[in-house]
């Protein structure tokens, strides 16, 4: 008789994982960051406290803090090594970042939330 833990583990479905981008969490006092493409990664949106602040309309009353989530999507097939090069380039540009989160598709579906 399997334990509940064994039963739960047995239900795991194998899915195909594909790297498609990176969420970068930056700290800056200089307002909404601007980026050129960095290698195969292109900035798609920037959010602050979960609210999209680039591109598009930003309420002048919106409360923003010094911590931005910047979503970079891959413009071609990329590997983990490309992320290392990207992080190195970003750091050399002078950006201070608190965390990076790789974005993966699972069986072709995004494994990350969209921005509001």
């Amino acid at each position: 008789m399997p334990t509940f833990t064994e039963t739960a583990i047995a239900t795991k479905k194998k899915r195909e994982i594909k790297l498609v981008g990176i969420d970068m969490y930056l700290i800056t006092e200089k307002g909404i960051p601007k980026f050129d493409d960095i290698g195969p990664f292109k900035c798609e949106f920037i959010s602050n406290r979960g609210t999209k602040v680039w591109p598009g309309f930003v309420s002048p009353d919106l409360l923003m803090v010094n911590w931005y989530r910047c979503r970079f999507m891959a413009t071609k097939d990329v590997q983990d090594a490309d992320v290392n090069i990207f992080l190195d380039a970003l750091t050399k540009q002078g950006w201070w970042w608190s965390a990076a989160q790789k974005l993966w598709n699972y069986d072709g579906e995004a494994g990350f939330s969209k921005a509001y």
Partner: peptide, 12 residues
């Protein structure tokens, strides 16, 4: 938790 920052950080 309403900041819409969610990720599948591994397949499980």
């Amino acid at each position: 938790c309403y900041a819409a920052i969610e990720h599948m950080v591994s397949d499980e």
